[in-house]
């Protein structure tokens, strides 16, 4: 180990603590704001210590919601949950099947399919907003869970990840399965699937966060308040025009919007880091 100087150690910790504080500061203020009444917040300066309305604000947000939106935040969280889970599970399922076909079979058009999947990397929603909206509306999928999830479940990254992983699975396993008379589906279900468990879990963590945090897509296709995801709900609570925004409820909702993905990152940190590194390969 390279020798260190005492003042350097102190300085290092000081810088890191400062970094942590700066990173956490906005969340702290949001938390504090979610525990006060609106009139407390409108004082100048707003209080910087938690107040007494914590439980009241959250209960009000969860079960009643803000005035600007006629739906309680609990309902919006449910929609976000459906979106997060639907996208994560859907992406993993369809990309695993596609990767299995591409790795373990030889068939005409195989490379064409591979390239078609690859191209999706270059077409994020942001660059094809209007025509995609039109397709979804023609299919009658506006304001539905199917419309919120299915258009987002094609993913080149997940397919590549599974393809990469399947390539490292020893050929002997497939050979042995074949000798024992197992068909491809049996091999997939009994051997490949159990082997992929860690990869699936790591990917699930990343994709759940991705799905929960979707913003542009639900903004486009949900007009019915009962289909709002929590992020869209926050936006609607903010756009009240000349009226006073209900900041204490908005801040409580913001905390609730952050909670599930942040908990996932903190408690599944190892899987999360693995997923992050693998998907970028």
């Amino acid at each position: 180990m390279v020798g260190t100087r005492r003042w350097l150690v102190v300085l290092t910790h000081a810088v890191l603590v400062l970094g942590v504080v700066v990173v956490a500061f906005p969340i702290y203020v949001t938390f504090v704001a979610s525990s006060h009444t609106l009139s407390d917040l409108l004082q100048s300066p707003m209080p910087l210590l938690p107040g007494a309305e914590l439980v009241g604000n959250y209960v009000h947000a969860l079960f009643t919601g803000a005035r600007a939106v006629g739906v309680p935040v609990g309902q919006m969280m449910l929609n976000s949950l459906v979106m997060g889970l639907g996208i994560a599970i859907g992406k993993i399922a369809i990309s695993m099947l596609a990767a299995f076909a591409i790795v373990y079979f030889r068939f005409p058009l195989r490379m064409l399919f591979f390239w078609m999947i690859f191209i999706t990397l270059m077409l994020p929603v942001e660059v094809r907003i209007l025509p995609t909206y039109k397709v979804v509306s023609d299919l009658g999928m506006l304001d539905t869970y199917a419309g919120l999830t299915i258009p987002l479940i094609a993913s080149a990254t997940a397919t590549f990840l599974f393809r990469q992983f399947f390539m490292t699975v020893p050929d002997e396993l497939a050979e042995a399965a074949r000798v024992d008379g197992a068909g491809p589906l049996r091999f997939f279900w009994d051997i490949l699937l159990p082997l992929s468990r860690t990869n699936m879990a790591a990917l699930f963590v990343i994709l759940f966060i991705y799905g929960w945090n979707q913003y542009l897509w639900p903004l486009l296709i949900t007009t019915d308040e009962s289909m709002y995801t929590i992020l869209i709900g926050i936006n609607r609570m903010l756009s009240v025009g000349d009226e006073q925004a209900e900041w204490q409820i908005i801040m409580a909702t913001t905390m609730l919007a952050m909670l599930p993905p942040v908990l996932v990152v903190i408690f599944m940190q190892r899987l999360f880091v693995k997923g992050l590194v693998e998907t970028e390969k």
Binding site: N213, Y215, L231, T254, A257, M258, P261, V262, V264, V265
Partner: peptide
């Protein structure tokens, strides 16, 4: 953990 915070949030 800020990675998990949505840009909109």
């Amino acid at each position: 953990w800020p990675y998990a915070v949505a840009p909109a949030v």
